[in-house]
Design a binder for these strands. Structure first.
Length: 455
RNA sequence: GUGAUUGUAGCUCAGUUGGUUAGAGCAUUGGCUGGUGGUUCCAAGGGUCGUGGGUUCGAAUCCCAUCAUUCACCCCA
């Protein structure tokens, strides 16, 4: 039994799912445009030299590599083959890989097109990315990212604007969210103050898990990373910091008094929070020090968005990274951006059933087909109806009524037009409302009017 | 990469301590004169029970291997 299948961690999207996904992407796109972001696309595959080494050792393993075409073994010596070193052999026979995220290809794009780009450059990008990960709930090997970044501007106004965009998008979706904000410089300050500056990655990774494994779990993990007991003790009040954002900042100022970088971080967060007050947002905005966002390339602001009404991981994340393009030889370009987790937003909207009814509609009107004479009569009518912007179908063959009605039903087409001999004689159309079952005899002009006044 | 879990029809699942021809619901297709669907009734198609081996007179059922699935960890969206 050879059932066809697709690779694990990939998905087919049905018409209904596509309608929902398009609603998500279109909403995000509209808001991006509203803030002056421009769309770009980059190839699915990049040179491996562009990708390798950008995501850490773990990331390199998760890259999908593409076998060279042609006789790729001809250049490989027998010694290399018998050595069976996968990594090294892969480097010899693969020179391309599938994109792992949108940020690195974007950095490459900026460097490559530096002379055509006007800075600050605000771009967005909605494309699939691929990771050779082991899939599990809500995690796929092919998934979509919706990134927006601003490069070439150090101003914190960009951070403010990004928060506004996140708020606007989730407001449009009708999802209640909490936007969490943190700053890498504060984390660095903390590590410095407790005397474990070189362990900053271990510390941030550990306290990022507070939600999941609790305080004891975090402390155990810190111990396993050989953080001193004294440092862990000093860390406790910081991890458990409470109160309003202002109160937290006040307390932090005391604790981090001796750290220049820490104070800088406090100042930055304070600025963003103050600015946001001038353009009130609907979402909650919370300073959360446990926010560390796994990857440690962020250097300033760190963002994360959580849905309030659904138990799910973060649905959006981002931050500022200085020297985005440094690895490609272009120094001094800072960027700040974030990424909507389209697949998780999809899950949230499904659970809360927040799709607007009209986002799921396709065909509005189906003409039943009784035969050649009727077809001839209906074709010009259908052209008129379509010209009026009504999404219309003619059933392609004179099948049984039951079949044609069933078709309309399965596609959730709200109106069916029935035209047989008696209708043709009167020059009218029998319009049936599939929800109420109600039928009325109308002229073409009247039919069009009904649809237009409906909107 | 680590640890578990589950593989029976297109989908969701039954299947007794191992016993003849493996079932149900949903879905699909057809029928109840080709002018009415979403909700009736009747019928049909569809499975070498993931694959390979073993134990047995006999395996969907027990054992081994293998592949696949799902979940958790690592990491991440």
């Amino acid at each position: 039994m050879q059932k066809p299948s697709i690779p694990k961690g990939t998905r087919d999207f049905s018409p209904v799912e596509m309608a929902k996904r398009n609603y998500i992407f279109n909403t995000i796109r509209e808001v991006f445009h509203l803030y002056g972001f421009q769309q770009i696309e980059t190839p699915a595959m990049e040179n491996l030299s562009t990708l390798m080494g950008k995501y850490g050792e773990e990331g390199d393993k998760l890259l999908f590599k593409i076998l060279n075409s042609g006789d790729y073994f001809s250049d490989v010596s027998d010694a290399e083959l018998t050595e069976r070193n996968t990594t090294r052999l892969a480097a010899r026979i693969c020179e391309k890989g599938l994109r792992y995220d949108l940020t690195v290809p974007f950095a490459r794009f900026v460097v490559q097109h530096r002379n055509e780009i006007t800075f600050p450059f605000k771009r967005y990008q909605i494309q699939p990315v691929w990771r050779a990960d082991r899939p599990q709930k809500g995690r796929y090997r092919e998934f979509f990212q919706c990134d927006a970044d601003v490069v070439g501007s150090d101003s914190l106004m960009n951070e403010v604007e990004l928060v506004q965009i996140m708020d606007e998008v989730f407001r449009r979706f009708g999802i209640r969210v909490c936007i969490k904000i943190n700053n890498r410089k504060i984390l660095s300050g903390i590590a410095e103050v407790i005397g474990e500056a070189d362990k900053i990655v271990d510390i941030t990774v550990a306290i990022d898990k507070l939600d999941k494994i609790g305080l004891e779990g975090v402390n155990n993990e810190l111990r396993s990373k050989e953080i001193s007991e004294k440092a862990i003790r000093q860390l406790q009040p910081i991890i458990l910091l409470e109160g309003s954002n202002e109160e937290k900042l006040q307390q932090l100022k005391q604790v981090l008094g001796g750290s220049a970088i820490g104070l800088k971080g406090i100042e930055e967060v304070g600025y963003v929070l103050e600015r946001i007050k001038l353009t009130p947002i609907q979402a909650e905005l919370e300073l959360d020090l446990t926010l560390a966002r796994g990857l440690n390339y962020y250097t300033g602001a760190i963002f994360e968005v959580k849905a309030l009404d659904v138990q799910i991981g973060s649905i959006t994340g981002g931050g500022r990274y200085d020297n985005l393009t440094g690895v490609f030889g272009m120094e001094g370009v800072s960027g700040v951006g974030f990424s909507f987790g389209a697949d998780r937003i999809f899950d949230v909207l499904n659970q809360l059933e927040l799709y607007p009814a009209d986002s799921l509609l396709t065909t509005q009107l189906l003409f039943v087909n009784f035969g050649e004479k009727e077809e001839a009569w209906m074709l010009p009518v259908i052209s008129k109806v379509r010209a009026a912007g009504i999404r219309t179908e003619l059933f392609p063959e004179a099948a049984k009524m039951k079949k044609q009605m069933g078709y309309a039903d399965a596609k959730h087409i709200p109106f069916v037009a029935i035209v047989g001999e008696s209708e043709m004689e009167q020059g009218k159309i029998n319009l049936k409302n599939m929800l109420t079952g109600e039928q009325t005899l109308v002229a073409v002009e009247e039919l069009i009017e009904r649809f237009q006044s409906d909107k």
